[in-house]
Design a protein around this nucleic acid. Structure first.
Lengths: 112, 112
DNA sequence: CTCGCTGTATTATGGCACTGATGCACTTAG
DNA sequence: CTAAGTGCATCAGTGCCATAATACAGCGAG
């Protein structure tokens, strides 16, 4: 019945967007796994798994017993990384798909 | 490490693309589950599962003991269906993402 | 009719991703 | 020191995916 994307991936994207948009400011602590889990109605471990990738990428810093902090420059770094991935991986695929469906990219730019 | 999409979904997309582009012409028989399974290195049942959805959507017709045939008008119907899904489900998300990343859609239309 | 091809149903099995509950190590406020 | 908060490791459960080995039913050529 879990037809949608995994919860931890949704959370990951959501957190990434929050960091990029400054909702989780650099240098500040982001919600604890338990807090975010309660807020999102998820399991703390699932939240932890979502946070994990940001640790591996060095975008957040862990202080055991204290919390996790957003590294300085994480926002722009994250934005650049996602931009790169979007342009190199996703956009070509999207273009090919639109072409196959007979859609003109120029037309879609206008629709809000 | 979210492994790649399930095999039967990949096959489904691949077959859909083939029908849209006329590689599997309307009225003609498409590869048997065993043949496509051998060609793709997959299990016949996995191929059957990929074919299943096209049957449910009435895009292919089964003649027991003979094979499965592409229904007349399946290509355009499939293209319209995917176009609808793309415009209503995927494109808004893509637009929001590009906006969040600071990418201008107009710029991307030109690249290639 | 016989043989070979079609799709389909059945059952079983292994693997893996996702989620969850519990407990531990650590830091800080009091 | 105590208590409450942090992240994290371990183990278990669940469900989907893919595979396999058969067996069956329908059609067509020889």
């Amino acid at each position: 019945m879990t037809q949608s994307r995994p919860v931890y991936l949704k959370l990951r994207d959501q957190i990434a967007a929050a960091i990029i948009q400054g909702e989780y400011p650099e240098g500040k602590m982001l919600p604890s796994v338990r807090a975010l889990a309660a807020e999102q109605g998820a399991n703390p471990l699932t939240v932890a798994k979502a946070y994990q990738q940001f640790q591996n990428d060095g975008l957040v810093e862990v202080q055991r017993g204290v919390g996790m902090y957003v590294v300085e420059g994480a926002a722009t770094q994250l934005r650049e990384r996602e931009k790169q991935h979007f342009l190199q991986e996703e956009w070509p695929e999207i273009r090919a798909r639109m072409n196959r469906l007979g859609l003109d990219p120029a037309d879609l730019v206008e629709c809000t």
